[in-house]
Write a protein that binds this DNA or RNA. Sequence first.
DNA 1: TATTTGCGAATGGTTAGACCATTAGTAAAA
DNA 2: TTTTACTAATGGTCTAACCATTCGCAAATA
Lengths: 237, 237
Amino acid sequence: MFKTVKQNKAYQDVVEQIQEAIMEGALKPGSQLPAERELKEQFGISRGTLREALRVLEQKGLIEIRTGVAGGSIIREINSENLSENLGMLIRNRSVSLHDLAEFREGMEGDVAALAAQRAAKGDLAQLVELLGEAGGHLKQGRKGWDAFIRTDEQIHLELARMSGNQLFIAVLTSVYRNIHTYYENYLPWSKELLQENFDDLRNIVAAVSEHDAEAARQMALEHVRRFNGYMEKKQV
Amino acid sequence: MFKTVKQNKAYQDVVEQIQEAIMEGALKPGSQLPAERELKEQFGISRGTLREALRVLEQKGLIEIRTGVAGGSIIREINSENLSENLGMLIRNRSVSLHDLAEFREGMEGDVAALAAQRAAKGDLAQLVELLGEAGGHLKQGRKGWDAFIRTDEQIHLELARMSGNQLFIAVLTSVYRNIHTYYENYLPWSKELLQENFDDLRNIVAAVSEHDAEAARQMALEHVRRFNGYMEKKQV
DNA sequence: TATTTGCGAATGGTTAGACCATTAGTAAAA
DNA sequence: TTTTACTAATGGTCTAACCATTCGCAAATA
């Protein structure tokens, strides 16, 4: 009938108060909290307890702590870094398998490509074409350009996400890319043919996006990811 | 030419060491760290600094700290709670809009339904049918059953995610659902007709899944989410 | 005058030692 | 056998001091 009374620790109380102030906009990004020795007075706690609270807020990505005079706790812009870190832990922990990750990407990349095709502006397309050119350049350098090629490949995918205009797709896909490298390095059977095929895929996707053909872009992206994943899973066995 | 030397704080060093031990499996979920007063000796730091490190690990969801004799820091199973919290902050902060969230759901739910249809086992289907029955029951209770209906609706969606067998879909969709309520409450034009329509959708999705018709399930789920979002966005304006 | 050097002060980082609060187990009392 | 009370171990908090880093200003220097 009754719920257990939640016995808040002092530091938790501080965390909640500051977090709430940030969420409600009372504390704006860029602004600064008072110095620890003053804050502890305002909260009526010891410095150690206050610091535990600040550490939690820092880990949450809500504040950044700088040393030195004029240092202190600065309110940060809310971002998706933590999302990446958490996703990374899930992946490293093998709660999320390569297969899971691959399957997830298939759906996401298709959606993203379709949205990008619908919404592409001229500037976006120019950026895509430039990245495509870069990727082609890396490919011509032979083996020593492979790493750079893969990085540019990723940039193209992220640019598509950016073009989708959806912050959630951007955040989640960014997280996926930050964490997929483990698998590239271990499971991808690197070869000139594979990268060339990859490059052709990218060209096709960009072409479909340029023509605002959402369904073609979706299909291209999906097949691209699916084939790529197929190679990795084959090597894994 | 050179990179700035990273001057690790003492507590960061402790965090990294313990986190690494957990990730590598040297510390297993359920096992316990030594007491603070002993740990501080092992690391050669003061108790305050150690506690800052433990607070960070706690916030990361890696350990749980219990008081009392036989208490201490217990290694936790890695889960997606933090993912939810981060997503929640992004949403509350309006970095992620209702529209973003809706668009994201459309793609995800379609994929999930398709996967569930492919992989549904008999036990899964029985569970789905039972949940469907529950939902129908709530609906018959009239207005006072609406809340319960929405909760069951969610359970059905999450059950589909579970059936997909993909941990990533499960984690991300769970996070989405934990945070979408804000919008339901504010933007959904509650009515008997809407909930009935919703219920019919669910029945269709479950039917498609039962027949292992992946594409039908995908289409049903997509349209279901899209219509639902349409209602919310209409009211929002 | 312009530049470099060095110092002072404010801020976070760390330490030490003490005491309070919570809890599991055990011994004593009923 | 059950209840009660105590004990000890553990995390939670406090105080007070000192160390480390950084910015700005003043003095020394070119």
